[in-house]
Simulated scan of single mutants.
Amino acid sequence: MTSLEDLPIRDDLRGKKAYGAPQLDVPYALNTNENPYPPSDRLVKALGEAVMDVAGSLNRYPDRDAVALREDLAAFLDADTPGAGLTAGRVWAANGSNEIIQQILQAFGGPGRTALGFEPSYSMHPIITEVSGTRWIDAHRDEDFGLEPGRAVAAVAEHRPDVVFLTSPNNPTGTALPLETIEAVLDAAPGMVVVDEAYGEFRREGTPSALTLLEGHPRLIVTRTMSKAFAMAGTRLGYLAADPAVIEALLLVRLPYHLSAVTQAVARTALAFREELLGTVDALRAERDALVGWLRGEGFAVADSDANFVLFGTFPDRRQVWQSLLIRGVLIREVGPPEWLRVSVGTPDEMAAFRNALKESR
């Protein structure tokens, strides 16, 4: 039987493993940072009607540039961050934020170029970087998982990367970056600066978005997703805000008709129901903060979180703890620093099950 090693794949792909979190049938899946609240019956009906509306024209290609969707996204972001001055010409959308990252690296990375990030951080940044032929540089985060501006600037000055990734709130640690760190990197970076805000809607009160820095920074890109706060992980819709020239650059590398008519219709419907969908954010924030307090009260080390997950530890053998929780029907994530585990914030019942299972696992 032919194996992967028998095929003439690129040399730089040999020995690598495909990305993927475990997809197991368990009572409590708390490993992929999804919003645990499903769409209401009212929204389900609206989504079905939206798909019906486009079903009769699926023999035709969709709007190649997704103009109406981008207008809706711009309106949402402009309301979320007053003064950002966003229009459809400054917003782009793709199949999840991973395709957004891929397009950015196709346009601004590639052979002979470098991308720099501060790990532990989102594991797809280095994966997509290397698959695009770009060299990845890990500059490391501080011991508390933060990022001191002076050290970040020093790393940028040393390596002169073509693309810098800043993740805020950071995955898997949950920590948000102060704007002064982002501004310092913007001032020092010779290339593009990407601020990944996949969990931006969950940040604590008073934590500003990098969207406020777009004006006057034409090399800044802020990425978002509808997979988390919007509870639309199955839709696969990521988007970004940037200078119009950045959108022009991405048009050079995007695949034709990359967003289906169904995806565009579903995403626009979700945006129309954003008050309902984002209405769960406050509840998840409160559940997160309660979980952080409980874990610390139980003697665990816990990273400050502005996201819908919590990184906690430390464990001499985290695999044993992970397995013990799984036996009890609770699936969390082995990710990030070796002695730590990450748990997604779920419903009160899911969090109660997690707490009980963790107590029994000690």
Rank of each mutant, 00 (worst) to 15 (best):
G89S: 12
G174I: 00
G15R: 07
L255Y: 08
T87K: 03
P337Y: 04
L326V: 04
Q106H: 11
P149Y: 06
I332K: 01
E130T: 12
L331Q: 14
E205W: 10
L43N: 01
L325C: 07
G112Q: 10
E350K: 12
L331I: 10
I101T: 11
Y37P: 05
F202P: 02
V195C: 04
D11V: 15
G297R: 13
A290I: 09
E180C: 06
P172F: 02
I128T: 03
L116F: 08
Y239I: 10
A242K: 03
R113V: 12
E99N: 15
T114R: 06
M351L: 15
K16D: 10
I9G: 06
R151A: 04
G299Q: 13
V156K: 00
T225P: 03
G279W: 11
L295T: 05
R342H: 11
P149H: 11
K228W: 08
M124A: 14
P161D: 07
G336F: 04
A245Y: 12
F145W: 06
A29F: 09
L147I: 13
T212M: 03
I104M: 04
L58E: 09
E334F: 06
T2G: 09
A357T: 14
G336L: 03
D306W: 08
D304Q: 15
D80M: 04
R254L: 06
N170C: 12
A198I: 06
A155P: 00
A55Q: 07
L177Y: 01
I101E: 08
A21T: 04
L58H: 06
A66M: 00
I137H: 09
A88F: 11
A66S: 01
D349F: 07
L86N: 03
Q23E: 11
Q323N: 14
R355E: 05
D304P: 14
A265C: 07
S361T: 14
L179P: 04
Q106T: 10
R254M: 13
I9E: 08
A75V: 04
R224Y: 12
F202K: 00
T167D: 12
T223A: 15
P149I: 01
V345D: 02
L177G: 02
S132T: 14
P149Q: 10
T269K: 02
G109E: 02
E130F: 08
E49Q: 14
I100H: 07
T114Y: 01
S305G: 10
R141H: 13
V330P: 01
G133I: 10
T2E: 12
H258F: 07
L47A: 03
L271F: 01
Y257E: 08
S97I: 05
D78A: 05
D138M: 11
A303D: 02
V292E: 00
G299M: 14
V335R: 01
R285K: 15
A79C: 09
E248N: 11
E119R: 13
L251N: 15
K359D: 12
F315M: 07
E158N: 12
Q23G: 09
E360Q: 05
V253K: 01
L295I: 13
T207G: 04
A115W: 02
T207D: 07
D78T: 07
A229S: 13
E205Q: 09
P82F: 08
R318C: 04
E180K: 09
V194G: 01
G297V: 12
P337C: 12
G109W: 01
D142K: 13
G191S: 06
L237Y: 11
D317G: 04
S40N: 08
A241Q: 06
Y28N: 06
G15A: 13
W340K: 14
A353S: 13
G234E: 03
T167I: 15
F165R: 00
